[in-house]
Amino acid sequence: MDSEASAFQSGLTVLPFANLPARAPLTMVPGEIVAWTPARMANAIGAWMMEETKLPPLAASVNAPKRHA
């Protein structure tokens, strides 16, 4: 039988106590799970198209001076 197995069977003598290291607390922020909705999907597709075509944002382009004015 292993010595460590017999130690307990012959009785436990608690050694001076030192268990867990000191805590270094921080808070984990849960990740988001946001489901798609038609509106969100449209927004995402719109944003992707803007990115792909490199068009300026709509609001900025409406009042922008004409390029060759």
Binding site: S3, E4, A7, F8, L12, T13, V14, L15
Partner: peptide, 11 residues
């Protein structure tokens, strides 16, 4: 108890 035993075996 098992943890204490382990701690004694492996100080």
């Amino acid at each position: 108890v098992a943890w204490e035993k382990l701690r004694q075996a492996l100080p």
